[in-house]
Measured scan of single mutants.
Amino acid sequence: ETEYTFDDKREADRAAKEAQNNGLRVHVTKDGNRWKVRID
């Protein structure tokens, strides 16, 4: 399990989409004014 934090939602969405394309499970959550992408 890996977690990334992004300031920009577009960057978070791009990272999530890339991980999904690689067959990974992805969870995107909002943390204040930042975005967390957790990859299982």
Rank of each mutant, 00 (worst) to 15 (best):
residue 11 E to L: 09
residue 31 D to N: 06
residue 29 T to W: 12
residue 11 E to V: 06
residue 31 D to H: 08
residue 10 R to C: 15
residue 24 L to F: 13
residue 7 D to I: 09
residue 21 N to V: 08
residue 25 R to Q: 11
residue 38 R to N: 09
residue 32 G to Q: 03
residue 36 K to A: 06
residue 23 G to F: 02
residue 20 Q to I: 14
residue 25 R to E: 09
residue 20 Q to K: 12
residue 20 Q to C: 15
residue 3 E to V: 11
residue 17 K to T: 11
residue 29 T to N: 06
residue 17 K to W: 08
residue 4 Y to P: 04
residue 28 V to S: 01
residue 3 E to R: 03
residue 18 E to I: 14
residue 22 N to I: 10
residue 39 I to W: 05
residue 30 K to V: 08
residue 40 D to W: 11
residue 13 D to W: 11
residue 33 N to L: 06
residue 6 F to Y: 10
residue 32 G to L: 01
residue 1 E to F: 15
residue 2 T to W: 15
residue 9 K to E: 12
residue 7 D to Q: 08
residue 37 V to N: 01
residue 39 I to C: 09
residue 12 A to H: 00
residue 12 A to V: 03
residue 16 A to D: 01
residue 28 V to E: 01
residue 30 K to T: 08
residue 39 I to E: 03
residue 29 T to A: 07
residue 33 N to A: 05
residue 26 V to W: 01
residue 21 N to T: 09
residue 27 H to F: 06
residue 2 T to F: 14
residue 22 N to H: 13
residue 35 W to F: 04
residue 34 R to Y: 07
residue 33 N to Q: 06
residue 14 R to V: 08
residue 11 E to A: 11
residue 29 T to D: 07
residue 9 K to G: 05
residue 32 G to C: 00
residue 8 D to T: 15
residue 17 K to M: 12
residue 22 N to R: 15
residue 35 W to A: 04
residue 34 R to I: 04
residue 26 V to Q: 01
residue 17 K to H: 11
residue 29 T to H: 08
residue 37 V to Q: 00
residue 39 I to T: 05
residue 25 R to T: 12
residue 26 V to H: 01
residue 11 E to G: 07
residue 3 E to P: 02
residue 25 R to W: 03
residue 3 E to G: 04
residue 24 L to D: 04
residue 1 E to V: 14
residue 14 R to D: 08
residue 1 E to Y: 15
residue 2 T to K: 12
residue 2 T to E: 12
residue 4 Y to K: 08
residue 10 R to K: 13
residue 15 A to E: 03
residue 29 T to I: 13
residue 32 G to Y: 00
residue 24 L to S: 07
residue 27 H to Y: 05
residue 27 H to T: 15
residue 22 N to G: 07
residue 32 G to E: 07
residue 15 A to T: 09
residue 11 E to S: 12
residue 13 D to P: 00
residue 16 A to V: 11
residue 37 V to S: 00
residue 17 K to P: 00
residue 9 K to V: 09
residue 30 K to Q: 12
residue 35 W to D: 04
residue 34 R to A: 05
residue 25 R to H: 15
residue 13 D to Y: 14
residue 20 Q to M: 14
